[in-house]
Design a protein around this nucleic acid. Structure first.
Lengths: 111, 111
DNA sequence: CTGATCGTCAACCAATCGGTTGAATATGCC
DNA sequence: GGCATATTCAACCGATTGGTTGACGATCAG
């Protein structure tokens, strides 16, 4: 039986999924719109979203025929607490986070 | 080409490896001693340590015939920064971390 | 009703993972 | 030298992962 942390960290261990989370940080999105910038099938992105949902990192709500995806940042709290215990990192540094998004987001190459 | 965060989060997604990190939080250890509490072969633990080392989460230094494993908490900084950006979690909470260790460490059943 | 759009499901595939065992390589001890 | 200790390597195994494709069920528009 996989621990909750297992599932959360495994969900974060994929660049596609981290990129999806970063996208959802800006706004809720429909599945199709989430999938649009990725060079993979809709089904593949749908699987990623399912995994993120099972990890509790996002929630999905179907309205009409479109399914909206919403970031659930609280799910990261457990994992964050676990990690911070090791480093006693300085308090939240949003600038560093912005730099990370900059380096992570363009990871999808144009062909 | 796996991103650095890929490797770090993947390394954290396994309870054995998280438990190893928690053990090393207390002190540096030899490979054999790390392996002792686990119900798996030494080779398996050695593989886990290799993975943690490749992720930069630990360093290994051979002195004589014993290889010492040392926690490298700085490697968690990148991942922690990434995560904190999502939740704006409150500053480091060591008490919560201690509770986590309590719930995680006894996850290995006695036979 | 018809047709297009939204999303998932099912089956498949290659690659990776977590584990095993047995042999191999250092190194230390006497 | 010779044996024990510490650790890794190599080959193997079953399960999981990340992706594909094609069919399918809902829902909306005309």
């Amino acid at each position: 039986m996989a621990d909750r942390l297992d599932i959360i960290f495994a969900a974060l261990a994929d660049p596609t999924r981290r990129r999806i989370l970063a996208m959802l940080l800006e706004d809720d999105m429909a599945v199709t719109d989430v999938a649009e910038p990725f060079e993979m099938s809709l089904a593949a992105v749908s699987k990623h979203l399912g995994l993120l949902s099972r990890a509790g990192l996002i929630s999905q709500e179907k309205r009409g025929r479109v399914k909206w995806c919403k970031l659930e940042p609280d799910a990261l709290r457990d994992a964050s607490v676990w990690m911070q215990g090791f480093g006693q990192f300085e308090p939240v540094n949003l600038d560093a986070f912005e730099r990370f998004l900059d380096t992570e987001l363009p990871s999808q190459k144009d062909p």
